[in-house]
């Protein structure tokens, strides 16, 4: 299925990416090429086939809700672009 310019704009917005007009144009043509190629997946019959999510486990194991490590606030914010009092600082959200 061809990908339209509107599709590219919609998806870029969802993915929080800004595209210039020329990038939108290029993505429209490249994604169209890719999705036309992907069309061949309509050939195999899959009506009675269960989707495969993982090759290793049928369902994700669930951990006990218990603290195993803690008191590492400094290590956690060590890579933050900006932090104060062991908290992440972000630009103002509410006007």
């Amino acid at each position: 299925m061809a990908v339209t310019r509107q599709d590219v704009k919609r998806v870029a917005k969802l993915a929080k990416l800004d595209l210039s007009e020329s990038q939108e144009k290029e993505m429209e043509s490249q994604l169209s090429r890719i999705f036309e190629w992907v069309e061949k997946l309509n050939e195999p019959k899959t009506a009675n086939i269960e989707p495969l999510v993982s090759v290793s486990v049928d369902s994700m194991p669930i951990d006990q809700d218990e603290v195993r490590e803690g008191d590492q606030a400094e290590a956690i914010v060590a890579n933050a672009p900006e932090s104060t009092l062991n908290m992440f600082v972000v630009p103002k959200i509410v006007e």
Binding site: K16, L17, D18, I76, V77, N79, A80, P81, E82, F88, V90, P91, K92, I93
Partner: peptide
């Protein structure tokens, strides 16, 4: 927000992500 590159010009949170 938590690690890696942050664009220096972001004014609001939406702009920060983008």
């Amino acid at each position: 927000v938590r690690y890696g590159f942050r664009h220096p010009d972001a004014k609001g949170i939406e702009e920060l992500y983008k």
